[in-house]
Structure formats: C-alpha cells, structure tokens
Write a protein that binds this DNA or RNA. Structure first.
Lengths: 226, 226
DNA sequence: GGACACATGTAACGGGTTACATGATTTC
DNA sequence: GAAATCATGTAACCCGTTACATGTGTCC
C-alpha cells in the first residue's frame, strides 16, 4: 500500500482533528468546510479514512443502527503529530480551473450569444457562492456557527472568499458590459485598441528593462549599497 | 476507446486551433496559454493529441530530425465543428485548490512561524504570478505578443488574472499583518472579537430572513406581476 | 405498506501525475 | 569527446469521479 500522504489526506485529518465524525458526516460536511478550497468527491473521503485508519493516524469505532454498521473516526496521537509536521512543510501553490477562459480564447468560432452566456454563468456561479458566503457570515454574526470558537481563524477564510468572489463578480460584469458593446466577435482595429487601452491601465508593474541584458547587469548595480 | 471529450480535450483543440504545433511545443507553450486556467501535466497532452487524432479532430503529420520523429498536429474541419458546439454548452464552474486555507484551519496545532511562513508563500506565489502577468502586459504594449492580433480577447484574460492576483496579494498582506499582532495561535476572546469585527464588515449581503418560511411563501408573492 | 428520501458505503474506470527513456544539440 | 541540456515522447501507478447497491426512518 502506498504510504505517502496527499493533501487530501491532510484535509481529512484536519477535519477529524476538530472532533470525531462518521465517514458519511465527513463527506457531507466537507461542503461547509473545504469544498471550495479542496474539492473532492465524497467517495474519495471513504477511501481516505480507511487508509488513514490502516496507517494508525485515525481510529475507527464501529456502531450499529439495526444491522447497518457505520464507523466513527477520531484522530490519534500519531495523526496529530503528522498534521503538526505537515504545517512546517511548503504548500502546494494556489491553482484554479476556469473553463470560461478557455472559451474566451476561441470565442470567435462561436456566437456572441455563446460568449455572453458563458460570462453570465460565471457571474451566476460567483453570485451563488457569495450567497453561501453571506450565510456563513450571518451564522458568525448570530454566534451559531459550528466553528464559532474559531472565529478568529475562520474570519481569515471568509475574508479571502468574499474578496475573491467579489473580484470575479466585478470582472464578469465589466467583461459582459464590454462584450455587449461589440457587434460581433471578429478581431478589429477598434476592438484591439480598446483592449490595449485596458491592458495599459492594469495595475501591475511591467519589467523595467528588456530581458536581453539580464545576464550582464551594469557594474554600478553590483556595488554594495553605501 | 472512450469517446467523450473532456475539458482538457477542448483545451488542446483550442490551442491547436490557433496554428499547428508539435506535441512537444503544445506541452511547452501551455505555460503561456492555459497553465493558470487549466493546469495539466505535459504527458496528459501527449495522450490527448493521440486520442484527438484517432477521432479525426486533429491531423498529425510526421517529420524527422535525423532518425528522431516528431508529429505536427493541425485541427481538422471536424475539430473546429466540435469546438464550435462546445461553445454553446454550459461551463464547468470555477474551482480552485488552496492548500493554505486547510492549514489555517488547523494552525493552532503548529507554530506561529509555520503559519507566517505559509502566508508568506502565498504572497510570494501571487507575486511571482504577477511578475509573469507584468511580462505579458509589457509584450502587448510593445506589440510583440504571439497573440497580438487577439489583444481584444486576451485583454479580458489579463484583466482577470491581475485583478485576481492583486486580490490574493492584498489578502495575504493584511492577513500577515493580523497574525503578526497575535502572541500565539490559541483561541481567545480578544482574537475572536477582532475576527467577528472583520466578518461584520465584509462586503456581502447576509440572508435577510430566516430560511424556515421558504417552503410557504406568502400569497402576495405568488401573484403575477401587474 | 409502498414510495421516497436519507444514511452508508463499494466497485470500476479513466484522467492526471511522476518517473523514466532515448535521440539530438550545444558547451567547453 | 564527455557532459549537460533540449527535444520528444512512453509506461505505470494512483487519485478522483461516476455509477451503483443496500439498509433504515418517514410520510401519507
């Protein structure tokens, strides 16, 4: 058996570290816990708890409802130690899947309505996730969230989400507005000029110098600071 | 053989639609094209072009350098048609993987320095991606980007990235600042109160009413609009 | 007491990644 | 002419998903 832990392993460990859960509850509650930062199918959770239990990082206790068994998992001392060590290692970088962008790049093959529909979906998805975030916000304000005692940590997460989602929402809106000014999706001087105008105003520093000379920086830059 | 196309299939098709490439070039150039919106390992591309060629959506032409063969792929009429149809279907929703958030939730198991290190990595990753975005911006301003003639579409993408990355960067900075005010990672009334304060100010609408009554909306709401 | 939703998983398939392999080109 | 790097892939493993299966309360 494979004995290297994946991030999914740690995600499960982390959730069980909060309190014991049955595998079913774990799979279910992932929605509120990690769905949006580490999305996985429910069945992956079932396999993962078994593995972790076999490795001694989780402990499974069997219960019965009639003749139907279920397993309650809790974390072991070894499991906590694994988590602790993990916290000191480098993270895997932020990554995303954003199919809408693929479609933008080949948009001229389709219709203007196709593209508007795609952008509308992006906006709707962001809207839905914001609604969920709003629910969570309300729970904390009402003091009834399951992790209320960790509000100081969860606040960081909720802040992240809402910032990110509002960014996506804002982008989808201004992009819809831009596309609505177009008559078609064909390239044109006018569209490209507008695009360049947008790009010029984007808030990011451009490389100050050409890359050709990077291998031989001027002497003056190599002197130590006074 | 499986004959259902995945988003990865369309990503490859979309890239080949621009112009013919060898499989190696495709895998390499994904970095500049789709790496950040649809990340996949290079070997996945090799398998995908073969499948697409077998289905008649791509056409492979073999070339030789000495006795080493390579294959140049170009899109077929059927391939273009597939892309066109795809543009009319619903997109898979935006999703992300953000391991840092998992670590925040179990942060009290580790040290304050662990957590600061994690956040520092997030900031560094965002910074690096912004540097890349800045390069692309400069290319467009200089008029030398490979897709210069599609600046009107690429502008939408670059705008998206830079907005998103600046959001992540800003979040990581204010979160670092917050954590630096903490003496430890243990929960406390004071930390939680600050967290709640943050949450209350987040720019998102909370659900205006309780969910209990949703199943029986008042009659007045069911009347048709005047 | 039949239908339906909830609870609790298992099996199989395929997509994705990591590791490896080999020919060509450049460097020194 | 040996070493390092680039070019061009292949093979194998495993994670993740989709589909299915079976038991249990609940509604009417």
């Amino acid at each position: 058996m494979r004995d290297q832990l994946t991030t999914t392993s740690y995600a499960v460990l982390a959730q069980v570290a909060v309190r014991p859960w049955s595998a079913y509850e774990l799979a279910e509650q992932r929605v509120r816990y990690f769905r949006y930062v580490w999305p996985r199918a429910e069945s992956a959770i079932y396999r993962e708890v078994k593995r972790l239990a076999a490795m001694g990082l989780l402990e499974g206790r069997k219960e019965y409802t009639g003749k139907r068994p279920r397993t309650i998992y809790s974390i072991t001392a070894d499991g906590k130690e694994e988590l602790r060590e993990w916290l000191g290692t480098p993270i895997s970088p932020f990554s995303m899947e954003f199919e809408a962008m693929l479609r933008i790049f080949v948009a001229p093959l389709g219709t203007r309505d196709d593209l508007l529909g795609t952008l509308e979906q992006v906006r709707a998805d962001a809207h839905e996730m914001l609604r969920f975030a709003g629910e969570v916000k309300q729970e904390f304000i009402d003091g009834i969230n399951v992790t209320q005692d960790q509000a100081y940590l969860r606040a960081l997460a909720v802040d992240f989400f809402i910032s990110l989602l509002r960014t996506v929402e804002a982008w989808s809106q201004r992009t819809l507005a831009e596309i609505e000014t177009w008559d078609d999706l064909m390239p044109s001087e006018e569209k490209n000029e507008r695009g360049l105008q947008t790009i010029r105003q984007l808030p990011v520093r451009t490389p100050g110098e050409s890359l050709k000379d990077v291998s031989k920086p001027p002497k003056s830059q190599m002197r130590p600071r006074s």
